[in-house]
């Protein structure tokens, strides 16, 4: 943590955020917003939150920018500007300034930034740092807390991805008539109508296998290095998104089609919750992985925790991958599932 650097980056972040709200051209605003997310990643890396920065780089700067672009592409790009509504702007400014002032006042009460002795860094967090290695044998404390100590949060978080994809899929599909779609998108189609550019296709063909390999590495190696189910899942999803951008959504559907996608969305969460349920059946509490050692007596309770975490991460990765891809396909084709961006 170097504060000079931090102040510079934070100032840039504020400028980017401001500009992205200011610009009239929506596409430009979205691109600036992508830059905002990337700068935010740098800030977080500087503060030692590598996993968060990794996720933000994949989710915030990568996938959600694509979502935005898809929306702008399918709606309108310019802000048509009709009347200058002063009263709303004025009142909301006053509300925001008052609230900001209220929040600012409380800042004086905080422990200084970077203080290692503040309550946040000592009360619960200290326990994790000191005991995680003995209790789970996972050096990456973020993974062990994510997938074991607070696994219940993570399960519902995966559930949120499931819910969001289901909502988006259901609602966008509804507007276009389901039967037509069942014919066109779900069947295995011959892909003749592909993108024209040979260069892009070849480059994507070269990149995608490596991306998927890297994603699997991130998922599996989450115990030892930054990464885990979410990050790996998003990268896997991004590889599919890249493929469907270079070619066509139909081409990807031929390998990995929509029916399968919705199922794998549910299966991912079910793997997570199912492991918890097995623990419950074996006599432990829900998500108490040490109960799994009754099933495999050769593993001790610590080893079974270690292994269960790996499977949990796989489940998370499955859901997040299919979730991101499902959201992308729905948004980018405006519910028609024919062409991508």
């Amino acid at each position: 943590m170097i504060w000079q650097f931090d102040i510079l980056l934070l100032t840039l972040v504020v400028v980017c955020g401001f500009v992205s709200l200011w610009i009239k051209d929506l596409m430009g605003a979205v691109i600036v917003f992508g830059a905002y997310s990337f700068l935010m990643c740098l800030v977080w890396t500087g503060m030692g939150a590598v996993d968060v920065a990794f996720t933000e780089a994949a989710v915030g700067a990568g996938v959600s920018t694509i979502f935005f672009i898809a929306t702008v592409f399918h709606t309108s790009r310019t802000i048509r500007y009709n009347k200058w509504d002063l009263s709303t702007k004025f009142f909301s400014s006053i509300i925001c300034i008052l609230m900001g002032f209220f929040l600012m006042v409380a800042i004086g009460d905080f422990p200084a930034w970077g203080d290692a002795l503040s309550p946040v860094n000592n009360n619960v967090a200290k326990y994790y740092l000191e005991n995680s290695m003995e209790e789970t044998k996972v050096p990456n404390v973020v993974t062990s807390v994510l997938a074991d100590y607070r696994a219940f949060d993570t399960m519902f978080e995966t559930g949120v991805v499931f819910v969001a994809s289901l909502v988006i899929f259901t609602l966008l599909l509804q507007s276009d008539g389901r039967k037509k779609l069942m014919k066109s998108a779900f069947q295995k189609v011959s892909f003749l109508n592909v993108s024209e550019s040979l260069i892009i296709r070849k480059a994507c063909g070269l990149m995608v296998p490596f991306m998927q390999l890297f994603a699997l590495y991130v998922v599996v190696h989450g115990h030892y290095s930054p990464g885990g189910g979410f990050q790996g899942g998003v990268i896997l999803g991004a590889s599919l998104i890249l493929l469907s951008m270079a070619y066509d959504i139909k081409k990807v559907f031929a390998r990995f089609h929509m029916k399968f996608m919705i199922k794998s969305l549910a299966v991912g969460v079910l793997i997570f919750a199912g492991i918890g349920l097995i623990c419950l059946i074996l006599g432990g509490n829900f998500l108490d992985y040490s109960a799994l050692s009754k099933l495999f007596p050769s593993m001790g309770s610590i080893k079974s925790r270690y292994n269960a975490m790996l499977w949990v991460e796989v489940g998370v990765a499955l859901t997040v991958m299919s979730g991101m891809f499902a959201i992308y396909t729905s948004l980018s084709s405006n519910g028609k599932f024919e062409e991508g961006l």
Binding site: A106, V120, N123, A125
Partner: peptide, 29 residues
């Protein structure tokens, strides 16, 4: 804002810790 003053998220523990911090502005916010 509660977390930064207490370092815990559990409601019971918050109930135990918070009486010491009643005059803090952060807790108010």
């Amino acid at each position: 804002y509660l977390f930064i003053k207490t370092g815990t998220l559990n409601m019971d523990q918050l109930y135990d810790v918070l009486p010491l911090l009643f005059d803090s502005k952060a807790v108010l916010v």
